[in-house]
Amino acid sequence: MHEMGIAQQLVKIALDAIPKDLKNPRVEIIHLKIGKLASVVEHSLTFCFEIITKDTLLENARLEIDSVPVRVHCRSCDQSWEVTGPVFKCPFCEDGDVEMISGREIEIISLELEETPCVDQPQIDKQ
């Protein structure tokens, strides 16, 4: 539901990261890491991203989302495991104190830009 807000933050970070000295930079891919327990719906994020990047340097850029599994650790018995459903109960000691290790990330990892020369090509004097 708040994907528009996330898309806006994402666009701001991505635009700030584009080097200022590039001529006509064109971003092709934005790599993201999103935890499976983060409240982000991928297609909503993509939809919002497409709307707000119109007429910007990010127009037509593609979001590549790397989904991060939910991993937890039991402080009581020191076991770690991947959670694939909503149950976080420790399967080893039942009443354990369970903490999350991963699965809530919403991170921007990198941008891939189309290869373009940084400066104008020097004119070759044919004479």
Binding site: I6, Q9, A17, I108, S110, E112, L113
Partner: peptide, 13 residues
């Protein structure tokens, strides 16, 4: 050309 960022999107909040 790849530009590394590695930033949390909700960092401002």
């Amino acid at each position: 050309m790849e530009i590394k960022i590695q930033k949390r999107v909700l960092e401002v909040n």
